[in-house]
Design a protein around this nucleic acid. Structure first.
Lengths: 234, 234
DNA sequence: TGCGCGACATTTGCATGCAAAGCAGGAGGT
DNA sequence: ACCTCCTGCTTTGCATGCAAATGTCGCGCA
């Protein structure tokens, strides 16, 4: 169940691809009933959408959709900022700091995936510090929805370096318990990140559209729609 | 499927009560599989929780839990306020205004349920005006989670009258496209409402605890565990 | 009479079977 | 040659059956 979610969140299943029940069943050795239940949950989380009698499709988000989610994420972190600064414990701060150090290490080594996960972890932990369970839950769910898209942003090394520097300031704001400052820093941090990410996403989108139009109309989409279903067993 | 959700959201199924599959099946004439899928969705939405081999129980929120959700709701409306004011169309405003007029009518007639639903509708529509689909979705889901608890607040007639008056100002702020003002008005509106609601909830809670301890320890919980039983109002 | 233990019944979790709805490919007509 | 319709296959949605786990009740014993 978690594995399917990971498959989608991590981006192994291309966006827009159709997920055949049979494929997953055989691949994961699980019955159809629990799989269907998992699908329903994933649909509720917005990761896939189930169209009646046609199966499950990985939700495909446009840059505009992602931007909408980013707005929400910024808002949620904004809600979290002041309570987080007010309530953060020593242990929590050290945990975040530890992630931060490991993250900088990843940056030094050029480990994008490692960096990305630690980055997510840090932001989640900051939100968690607010001690608001629903807030944490929602934040986590929305991060999962857009994670695969945000990955694109830090491929730009200048932006990546800037992000690390911004994180330094964020950490300092937490240490000094400067709630409003933290909120503003987070807001700007995400805004900057998103600006670059959006560029990359739109460039990719344009490239895809061009290649699709160039070779054959809609063929690209069709291929990814067969998707997970490996070319039928003989 | 929607009917089950309504059953829970509306509060017909008391919080903490166990929901027997069989009961719902017979009552609604639906198979077990779709019901289980519905349960999984409701669990994902946080309306019920499924404990392994023991079935589904309606999620019971403490006043503190509700307060956490209220904080999130205020934050979400805060995110929505400025875009909503910036983008609201004439048609949208008229729709809200229409609800507002109907709502005032409900207040005049003392129709609490009607008032409540229109109130929910208005707030939802304001959020919807921001044109942020994920925002609207999350807001709606969280409202559903705490709706039954918020109902308690407006039983106090002074608070109810004040709420109506606050809504007048809110409407004016939208009309005048005053984003920051709208955010502040909404925030105060909810804070005021919640203060009263929390009082009522805690009073009810204390009363329940007293009656339970007075008659017999744990008996109340046992009775509600027998099924969809609604022993709340004797 | 109170308490502990064992068997029963109920309920859930999962797998599988059957029917319906789409979709694809092919044949026939214009 | 293209379009249209038809037939077959694949896939999904739902119902039911079976096994495991848990709560409950009754009985025996101290």
């Amino acid at each position: 169940m978690e594995r399917i979610r990971d498959l989608i969140v991590s981006g192994e299943l291309p966006a827009g691809s159709r997920i055949a029940e049979r494929t997953i069943i055989e691949q994961m050795g699980v019955g159809r009933t629990p799989l269907r239940e998992a699908f329903k949950i994933l649909e509720a989380e917005g990761l896939i959408s189930i169209v009646p009698n046609r199966g499950a499709v990985v939700t495909q988000l446009t840059p505009t959709d992602v931007e909408a989610v980013m707005t929400v994420l910024i808002g949620l972190e904004g809600v979290a900022s002041e309570p987080a600064c007010a309530q953060v414990t020593q242990a929590q701060f050290m945990s975040i700091e530890n992630d931060h150090l490991k993250m900088m290490d990843c940056h030094r080594r050029g480990d994008l995936m490692g960096y990305f996960h630690l980055n997510q972890s840090i932001h989640q932990k900051i939100v968690d510090c607010a001690g608001n369970a629903p807030l944490s839950r929602i934040y986590k769910a929305e991060c999962a929805r857009v994670g695969r898209y945000r990955l694109a942003g830090n491929r730009n090394s200048a932006r990546w370096a800037a992000a690390v520097s911004e994180h330094e300031q964020i950490l300092a704001a937490i240490r000094d318990r400067e709630g409003p400052l933290l909120r503003e820093l987070l807001r700007v941090h995400h805004l900057n990140g998103w600006r670059k990410t959006r560029e990359v996403l739109e460039a990719e989108l344009a490239a895809n559209a061009r290649s699709a139009a160039g070779s054959r109309g809609g063929q690209e989409r069709k291929r990814s729609a067969t998707g997970v279903s490996k070319p039928r067993s003989p």
